[in-house]
Design a protein around this nucleic acid. Structure first.
Lengths: 346, 346
DNA sequence: TAAATTCTGATTTACGTACCTCAAAAATTG
DNA sequence: CAATTTTTGAGGTACGTAAATCAGAATTTA
C-alpha cells in the first residue's frame, strides 16, 4: 500500500502535525526533528497524493490564453483547440480563459499581459511577439510568480518558463532540405533555380527563424538555388495572393515557393491562376482544409505542420506542472514537426 | 463556484443519498425522482470531481505491459519508457507492471495474457502478434471486462479497445513517396531506377503493411522505379549486412534502399563498405543511435520514426480512460509518423 | 385496510491531505 | 531555578465524493 502522512508520522515517531509542518515547510520544527521526518519520508518512499492535496487546498487552476485574432485557418484552429480544452477542463478543477488581441501588435499584447497580470491567474500562455516591451511585460509576470508559456512563437532568453511550439530553425532547415532535394534534377540545371519565400511578417520570431533555417540549408547544400527577396503577406490570404501573383509575373523562372507563414489560401489561388507551363514546387506550413486540398491536388508538394492541439494540451500540462512546482516530462512536451506529403495525410 | 453533489441535492429538493444513487446507478430510486435529479444535474452543469471520487473509492489503477524481450534498440527503448512511466506513476495512484515474453512467440503471449487475466488488472497493454489464439485470449480479457490496448503492433478486428502505434501502411506510403521524389532527377532517367527493400520478416504484420504502402505508391506514381524482391534480414544486424552486401554486389544499379524493419546497424555497414561511386538513397525506420549517426553522416537520407514514449503514455491514458468509462481525445492519441532528415534531428 | 414492499432522507464514516487551535512538553533564556 | 520561548502532540474540520445504515414515508399488494 502507498504510504500516507500517517505512516511517516508513525515511522518517524512524531505526530501528524509535525509531519505536516515539514511537508508544507511551516515553521516550528527543530532541525533534528525535521531531518528525522525527512528520513522517514525517504525510507518509505512517500509521495504526496496531489489529488488529495488539491482537494484539501480547494486549489483551482486559472489559466489565460492570449491569442491573436488572426483570420487564418491555423489561428482559428488554435482557438478551437483552446475552446476544446476549456470544455474538458471543468472536470479537472481548471478554468481557462481566452483573451483576444490584434495580430502583430506588440503594444496590444503588452496591454493584454498587463491586464492579465492584474488578475493573478495561475498561469499564462500567449503567442509571443519578439519585442523588448513584450519581454519586459513577461518579466513582470515572472516577478509576480505567474508561470508563462509561449505558444507557437517564442520569446527566447526572456523569463518565460516554457515554449510550446516547434523548433522553427529546424523547420526551415527541413523545408530547405526538401526543397533542395525535390528541385534537384527536374529544375536545377547548369544555371540553377529560383525560389521565392512568402512570409507573414519578419516581426515574429518563428517566421524569421524559419527563413534563417531555410536559407542556411540552401546556402550550405544547394548553392545553385537562388532565393528571391522575402515577400510579406501578413498572414492574410488576400494580400498573400497579390504579392505571390506579382512575383510570379515578374519572375517567370520561379521553380519553387516556400510559404513559411499563414494565408496559404491566397498563395494557392495565385499559383493556380498563374497557369504556368511548369508548376513551381510549393512547400508550405500548417495543414488546413485548403493546404490539405492543395496537397491532394498536387498544387502543394509538402506541408510542414505543427499540431495546435498538442501545443495547447502541452501548454496546459506545463502550466499546471509549473504552478505545482513539479518537473515536466521533456520528451512529452517536445512539439514535433509533422511532414505531410500527399501519401501520408491523416 | 463549481456545483457539488450537495448543490444538486438542494436544487432537486432531494437528499444527498438519492443524488448518490442516481449518480452511481444504484437501485432504489423511482423514475420520477431520478429524472428530477438528472434535470438538476443538467441545469447546474454538474460534473463529478474525478479526483475526489477516486479518493473516496480508494481506486487504484493496476496496469500490465506485456513486452517482448527483444534486444533491438527500439524494444529496449520501449522498455525504458515503460519503466519511466512506472517511476512517475506512484504519484498518480497507478501501479504498472512489466511482463516479459519471448519475441515472436504467440503461445508465450497467450500464456502471459492468461496469467494476467487471472490477476484482474484494470488494464493490459501488449505488443500484439497477429495469430488466432492471441485473438481468442484478448476476447477472454474483454469478456472479463479488462480493457486492452495493443502497442506498436496491432491486432485488427480483435476485441482490443485501442491501438497505440503508427499507421504502418501510411508509413510505407510516405517512404515510397520520399523515395520516388528523392530519386526523381538524379537517378531516374529514361531507363528508371532500381530499389531494394530490406525487411525483418514478412510474417510480421507491421512489415507486411509497410511494404504494401511502399509498393503501392511506387506502383501508382513512380512506374519507372523497379522494386527488387524483398530481402529478409530477420531484424538481425549481421544477417542484414550479409543480404544487403550481397544485393549491392549483384545489382550494381541499386539507387535506393528502403529498410522497413530493424537491424539497421548491418545495413549501414554494408552500404559504407560497398564503396559505390554513387551511394544509394537510404530510407530507414526508427531513430536509434546508429540511424541517427548515419543520418548525420549522410549514409541514411531519411528516417521514419515512432516515438515509443508517446506510445506508452498514450496507452496509459487510454487504459485509464477506458477503466473509468471516459471518452478519449482522439487527436491526442494518434501516434504520428515522424520524418527525420539530417536537418531536423531533435 | 392492513401488511408488505419499495423509496427516500438523514446521518455517518472514509479517502489523503491541508490547515487550524489548544495544550503540553521541551528547550532556551535570564 | 523560574520565566519565557520554542517545539511538539492531539485533535478537529474541511475538501467532494462513495458507500453504508437505519428509520420513516410512500407506494403497492393482498
Amino acid at each position: 500500500m502507498k504510504p500516507t502522512v500517517h505512516d511517516i508520522a508513525k515511522s518517524a515517531g512524531g505526530s501528524l502535525a509535525t509531519v505536516d509542518r515539514v511537508l508544507n515547510d511551516r515553521p516550528g520544527v527543530r532541525a533534528v526533528t525535521r531531518s528525522k521526518v525527512e528520513e522517514a519520508i525517504a525510507a518509505l518512499g512517500y509521495v504526496r497524493d496531489l489529488a488529495a492535496a488539491n482537494l484539501a487546498k480547494g486549489r483551482t487552476y486559472s489559466f489565460v490564453f492570449i491569442l491573436p485574432e488572426n483570420d487564418n485557418s491555423f489561428m482559428i484552429g488554435l482557438h478551437e483547440e483552446v475552446r476544446g480544452a476549456i470544455a474538458r477542463s471543468s472536470a479537472e478543477r481548471t478554468h481557462i480563459r481566452i483573451v483576444d488581441v490584434p495580430p502583430f501588435d506588440p503594444d496590444a499584447l503588452v496591454d493584454a499581459l498587463e491586464k492579465v497580470l492584474a488578475e493573478k491567474p495561475s498561469g499564462v500562455a500567449f503567442v509571443a511577439i519578439d519585442a523588448p516591451e513584450v519581454r519586459a511585460a513577461v518579466g513582470r509576470l515572472k516577478e509576480a510568480g505567474i508561470p508563462t508559456v509561449t505558444l507557437v512563437s517564442d520569446l527566447p532568453d526572456a523569463s518565460r518558463d516554457h515554449y510550446a511550439g516547434i523548433d522553427n530553425i529546424a523547420a526551415g532547415r527541413t523545408a530547405g532540405s526538401l526543397m533542395g532535394r525535390f528541385l534537384s534534377g527536374p529544375f536545377v540545371g547548369e544555371r540553377g533555380a529560383t525560389v521565392a519565400v512568402l512570409a507573414g511578417s519578419m516581426l515574429v520570431r518563428d517566421h524569421r527563424e524559419r527563413l534563417e533555417g531555410f536559407s542556411s540549408v540552401i546556402g550550405e547544400s544547394y548553392p545553385n538555388v537562388l532565393i528571391l527577396p522575402v515577400l510579406e503577406g501578413r498572414d492574410d490570404p488576400a494580400l498573400a495572393e497579390t504579392v505571390v501573383a506579382d512575383a510570379l509575373r515578374r519572375h517567370a523562372d520561379i521553380a519553387g515557393i516556400y510559404s513559411l507563414g499563414a494565408g496559404n489560401r491566397g498563395l494557392i489561388r495565385a499559383v493556380q491562376k498563374a497557369g504556368m507551363s511548369r508548376r513551381p514546387l510549393v512547400i508550405a506550413h500548417e495543414l488546413t482544409a485548403s493546404t490539405r486540398a492543395a496537397l491532394a491536388e498536387g498544387v502543394i508538394d509538402a506541408v510542414l505542420n505543427q499540431d495546435a492541439g498538442h501545443e495547447v494540451r502541452s501548454a496546459i500540462r506545463v502550466l499546471k506542472a509549473k504552478a505545482d512546482g513539479l518537473p515536466v516530462i521533456a520528451g512529452q512536451e517536445r512539439i514535433r514537426i509533422d511532414i505531410f506529403l500527399k501519401d501520408n495525410l491523416p
